[in-house]
Nucleic acid binder design. Structure first.
Length: 1000
RNA sequence: GCCCGGGUGGUGAAAUGGUAGACACGAGGGACUUAAAAUCCCUUGGUCCGUAAGGGCUGUGCGGGUUCGAGUCCCGCCCCGGGCACCA
């Protein structure tokens, strides 16, 4: 009779594996559907209940689509290159491949327990040479490509060479140069190109390749011995480990993602992604329209280039500020100012980016002594250096308009520089006016124009004067691609005379070599430099490896054809499976993975390898499941013991006496309900440090009450094991509860229980609040876990995990099971229910009420899955079971379709019941039931009758009645009449099948 | 500062402009049981009146507005979460 989840789930997991139930192949006769989860990095900690949330949701959709006739690709794999395995390798000497293998096995075991419909025959691992062969191959394609801005497309380098050979390179083409890391490239003719030596040619080509090597400002992290990407640096320290990061110029592999800035931006409009992710990407790309303005130097050749979004404020320029790193600083500073200026530059430069960012309030700068010429007025404008201008961004110089920009205003005010009002109605004595809908008021030809018109006019004038032009600037930077690390894809490049060359395709995969240690060499070379024979035909190989995002930028393609040895995936497979129809993962990847993922897809499209240029049409971000930490308060009482003995004073004047401490000090854990009763003033807690908060392991906490005796057995922290736990009416020491030694129990009744406060925060080992899905599954089963995770709330929302609530979904499954077995002959509990527990199903025709429940459920669940509103579908299942239980329904015609609708959510129990209903094939093959609206039609409706919008009573009328008939019937009702008190209603609103509102 | 989310019982939450709190947890009461577990039934936003049946008022962060009717739409604030930021 009982619902034995363990037997059922083990049986079906084995059966699915044996039958290959979830294996999938291209099948042109069926429509395809591609459901993808962001694959996990297999960490040593294993999965906690938060990880599978998205996987369960996508699994439900995958199963639902299968029932609806789609051929569903639903794969899983591992992002198995990464820092933690390498850190572990450095500490222990254990090869990261080994650790990764162990962790993957553990992940697989945990994932299998949850009953996902993954086609494991398609598993990929980014650290597998058969996979990273193609990551390297794509790298070579990028190395062999340049971006033709005129055509808005990546093209082979060979085409560029032809162009150079016949046309050379002209400054007019210079817009092809993108990114922030190139040096100035001069124009050359075809004849010059043909005369260049190999070295020169290769150096020039680096300016065009989409994967390129150049001197770049990088985030160098000395502690990690590596370079970090911009998005791996948070607040000036490394995201992982929190080590300081400094700006350093060094040779660096980069990806020219900036070439795609406009397309990455435009593409967002075509995607069904959450607005917040799209917005984050828009911000990250950071397109701004404005003008490049050149200020001629007064006493030197050349000019200062400035980018501004507000050329309309040019008449408000009172000075120009250069970043301390700006190369002109040295050039223009006159000798008599040199000492002072260079001293400032040195300090400003040495301040880390972190300090400069943290210190917004402090204004610092110095006058160079040089002047430049205002392009419109011809007046002299002083040139300053200020550290509020960053060298790495834009041109590293700003035209300062203190009347229109707050930072410039701060700088001008601090140094007493003139401030000109640029807009009508601005009060420049208090702050700058940054409004973009103002009218220009500064003297000159822009006066009286609205800002947008003034911008256009200003640019026109700049162009006429040759002093500037329209310019679109992107915040997006080229992506650093090399890491001074071992555990990543080797970059398939070798060096001849210091010039990088592509390794021939036939040499791929370039496998990771064995090294004696996973650390940088003594002279700071990356670990790969330790490898013996790390060269190609005598030429040294590249020693940096690829970053984490390389493999994840294209893995979705490999799943389509994971064992192909000839190509990253066959054209047939790609043409069949196309884009990902539903991609599920965390929103923390908004500007990292999800941008590179789109970038590589666009690139592969440009070069003709794939027919689409966006990887995933729909993206859903699951929320985070937070942990609930159990926080215990611990205090060290002092001094009172010396005079009063081991008594703890309470605010009502009484004292409680736990077992006597041997010294004059006592360290106690205090139950949350006792906390407010202790008189901490009298207890003379020396200082705040004597009251501390410690997280207890939530495995020993139930509804806020700690099982202290169990906890001290399983606890590794000594202070927790040996602690004295003060409760309301006694204390617990060494796991034994005792009454207080004096008669001052606050409450002599009841058990001595220790309570903790709960705190919702990130689930993590260090907070002792991790819930392992394996434990939940052992107790309640995977089907219960799946249902409960969905039942917690909307998928995209973050929510705390509370194991206590799981009983509800477990009870639901037991009731569902009972529907099939109520009145069954074998009512006695038996060890295994699988064969001996016959179902009790009849073939009788269902009643109207039963059909209504069934069809309402099919309708609601079908619609909810499409909307990814899983919590409401689970609620509907509960309603159905409660109602069918009350109707004592055990009819096949009702239960059979219900099993199919439940199958995507709780596949194990559904398979078992499906089999019991007499089917020999898997429930996953059953077609999705259709709901029939005719079963949902009601004969009558109970109208809420409201007066002025407030519901007062209910009246039932046939739905066939017209508005007028309902109104008449309502007004004829004696109760309504008495409420009206003889007054005629002002108005009566009847909304059929909804409400009646009487206005009085 | 800017851009996205969000704010509803003790808790997780539900609600095409139409009966706020579905569903579930927890809590309280009861049934069954020698007992426990399991299961089942009832109550459960707040508050007031009533012995009771029942009824009144109030209530979706705050203040306005639109509407016969607002958790939902509009305007102005407050708070929480996430993202971005010396980009000139």
């Amino acid at each position: 009779m009982a619902y034995e989840h363990k037997d059922i789930e083990e049986k079906w997991r084995a059966e699915w594996a044996k039958r290959g139930t979830y294996k999938v192949a291209s099948d042109p006769s069926k429509p395809k559907y591609y459901v993808l989860d962001m694959f996990p990095y297999p960490s040593g900690a294993g999965l906690h209940v938060g990880h599978p949330l998205g996987y369960i949701a996508s699994d439900i959709v995958a199963r639902f689509k299968r029932h609806n006739g789609f051929n569903v690709l639903h794969p899983m794999g591992y992002d198995s290159f990464g820092l933690p395995a390498e850190q572990y390798a450095i500490q222990t000497g254990q090869h990261p491949a080994k650790t990764t293998e162990v962790n993957v096995a553990r992940y697989r075991e945990q994932l299998d327990n949850i009953g996902f419909s993954f086609d494991w025959s398609r598993e990929v691992r980014t650290s597998d040479p058969s996979f990273y062969k193609w990551t390297q191959w794509i790298f070579l394609q990028l190395f062999d490509s340049w971006y033709d801005h005129a055509a808005q497309q990546a093209k082979p380098i060979s085409e560029l060479l032809k162009r150079f050979e016949t046309q050379g390179w002209h400054h007019a083409d210079a817009c092809a140069l993108t990114g922030d890391v190139e040096e100035e490239l001069g124009a050359f003719t075809a004849a010059e190109w043909n005369a260049f030596d190999e070295r020169t040619r290769q150096r020039i080509l680096q300016h065009f390749r989409l994967a390129y090597l150049s001197e770049a400002w990088v985030n160098w992290c000395p502690a990690l011995g590596t370079v970090l990407a911009n998005d791996e640096v948070k607040d000036g320290v490394s995201e992982r480990g929190g080590h300081p990061v400094e700006r350093k110029r060094m040779p660096q592999w980069s990806m020219r993602i900036t070439a795609y800035a406009q397309r990455l931006l435009d593409g967002l409009d075509t995607l069904d992604w959450s607005e917040s992710i799209k917005e984050a990407q828009r911000n990250w790309i950071g397109r701004s329209e404005g003008a490049l303005v050149r200020f001629k130097l007064k006493d030197a050749a050349g000019d200062i280039e400035v980018f501004t979004t507000r050329p309309d404020t040019l008449f408000g320029v009172t000075f120009v500020t250069l970043a301390p790193e700006h190369e002109l600083v040295e050039v223009i500073t006159p000798a008599d100012r040199r000492e002072e200026v260079m001293a400032y530059v040195t300090t400003a430069k040495n301040r880390s980016e972190r300090e400069r960012m943290a210190d917004v309030k402090k204004v610092s700068g110095v006058f160079t002594g040089a002047f430049c010429i205002h392009p419109f007025t011809g007046q002299e404008v002083p040139v300053w250096v200020g550290d509020y201008v960053l060298g790495g961004y834009g041109t590293g110089a700003v035209m300062a308009v203190p009347g229109g920009d707050q930072r410039d205003w701060n700088f001008a005010t601090h140094f007493g520089l003139p401030i000109i009002a640029v807009t009508e109605g601005a009060d420049i004595s208090k702050e700058a006016d940054e409004r973009k809908d103002a009218t220009i008021s500064s003297e000159g030809f822009l006066k009286g124009l609205k800002v947008p018109d003034a911008i256009t006019r200003a640019i026109d004038e700049l162009v006429k004067l040759g002093a500037g032009e329209r310019r679109i600037n992107f915040r997006l930077r080229d992506a650093a691609f090399g890491r001074q690390r071992y555990w990543g894809e080797p970059i398939p490049i070798y060096y001849k005379d210091g010039v990088p060359y592509a390794l021939p395709e036939s040499e791929l995969p370039l496998k990771l070599p064995e090294v004696d240690k996973f650390l940088p060499t003594e002279d700071g070379e990356p670990p790969l430099a330790r490898a013996a024979n790390w060269n190609y035909k005598g030429h040294p190989l590249e020693t940096t490896t690829m970053p984490g995002w390389a493999g994840s930028s294209w893995y979705f393609l490999r799943y389509m054809d994971p064992h192909n040895a000839e190509r990253f995936a066959s054209p047939e497979a790609i043409n069949y499976w196309q884009q990902v129809d539903l991609y599920v993962g965390g929103s923390e990847h908004a500007t990292g993975h999800l941008l590179y993922f789109r970038f590589w897809t666009k690139f592969l499209h440009d070069r003709g390898w794939i027919p689409f240029d966006e990887p995933a049409t729909k993206l859903v971000n699951q929320g985070m499941i937070q942990g609930v930490s159990a926080i215990a308060t611990r205090s060290q009482f002092k001094t009172n013991f010396e005079t009063d003995g081991p008594l703890i004073p309470l605010i009502d004047g009484r004292r409680i006496e736990p077992s006597s401490p041997t010294t004059g000090f006592g360290r106690f854990f205090i139950s949350a309900d006792l906390l407010g009763l202790i008189d901490f003033a009298k207890a003379s807690v020396a200082d705040e440090r004597n009251v501390t908060h410690l997280p207890l392991d939530i495995r020993f906490v139930n509804s806020g009450i700690v099982d202290v005796s169990q906890m001290i057995l399983g606890e590794s922290r000594e202070d927790i094991r040996s602690g004295v736990y003060l409760c309301l009416n006694g204390f617990i020491k060494d796991g034994v509860a005792k009454r207080y030694l004096n008669d001052n129990e606050i409450n002599v009744e009841g058990e001595i229980v220790f309570r903790v406060e709960s705190l919702v925060e990130k689930m993590s080992k260090s907070k002792f609040n991790v819930v392992n899905p394996d434990d939940i599954i052992a107790k309640y089963g995977a089907d219960t876990l799946r249902l409960y995770e969905m039942f917690l709330g909307p998928l995209e929302q973050s929510k705390p995990w509370d194991t206590n609530g799981i009983e509800g979904t477990y009870r639901f499954l037991k009731k569902f099971w009972y529907l099939f077995h109520a009145g069954s002959s074998s009512d006695a509990p038996v060890a295994s229910t699988l064969r001996v527990d016959p179902p009790h199903i009849t073939d009788e025709a269902p009643t109207k009420a039963e059909l209504k429940v069934l069809h309402a459920t099919i309708k609601k669940v079908s619609e909810d899955i499409e909307k990814m509103s899983f919590n409401t579908s689970v609620a509907q299942f509960m309603i159905a079971v409660n109602e069918l239980g009350a109707l004592k329904c055990n009819k096949r015609a009702v239960l059979e379709p219900l099993v199919i609708t439940l199958a995507p959510f709780a596949p194990h129990i559904a398979e078992e019941l499906w089999e019991k209903l007499g089917h020999s094939t898997s429930v996953t093959l059953a077609p999705w039931p259709k709901w029939d609206a005719s079963h949902l039609v009601e004969d009558s409706f109970s109208y809420p009758i409201s007066f002025n919008g407030k519901t007062r009573l209910q009246l039932e009328f046939p739905i066939a009645l017209s508005k007028e008939e309902v109104e008449a019937a309502v007004l004829a009702n004696p109760e309504v009449q008495s409420k009206l008190g003889g007054q005629p209603p002002k108005k009566v609103i009847v909304v059929p099948k909804r409400i009646v509102n009487i206005v009085v």
